[in-house]
């Protein structure tokens, strides 16, 4: 990227109608699909996809391993923490907070990635 001196920008609200000081350059690269712009988008897509796949892997391991676990270790399936048989406790109750937790973490992380990308575009 050509070394342009960063301009001081006062951002009140992010609004399409608001005049923009900085960011025009990278923005143009993105919109015109130049080599740099395309590389930026590819990088963003790759980051987002990697994040989504990591979260999916957490669920795949956390929940997806259960049928196999119960099949190869029936003794585990027969234990009764809190007086409830383990598979009932895991699938009937614990699965839902777990799924929500993964979803919450994903939203948190993906919003951070997007903020970083926005900053990158707005500042250069």
């Amino acid at each position: 990227m050509p070394p342009e001196p960063p301009k001081r920008v006062r951002v009140v609200l992010v609004d399409a109608a608001a005049p923009r000081g900085g960011g025009d350059h990278t923005r143009a690269e993105l919109e015109e699909q130049t080599g740099i712009g395309e590389a930026l988008v590819k990088g963003l897509v790759r980051t987002q996809l990697a994040l989504a796949l990591r979260c999916a892997a957490v669920v795949a391991v956390g929940l997806g391993s259960l049928p196999l676990l119960f099949a190869i270790a029936p003794a585990v399936a027969g234990t009764r923490p809190f007086g409830v048989v383990l598979p009932w406790l895991l699938l009937g109750v614990a699965a839902y907070p777990f799924l929500f937790g993964v979803g919450w973490a994903y939203v948190h992380l993906v919003e951070r990635t997007e903020r970083d990308f926005t900053d990158l575009v707005e500042k250069h």
């Binding site: 993105l30 988008v41 963003l44 897509v45 987002q48 990308f117 926005t118 575009v121």
Partner: peptide, 8 residues
């Protein structure tokens, strides 16, 4: 995929 605030 572009973040919403950029409005691209």
């Amino acid at each position: 995929h572009a973040p919403d605030p950029l409005r691209l």
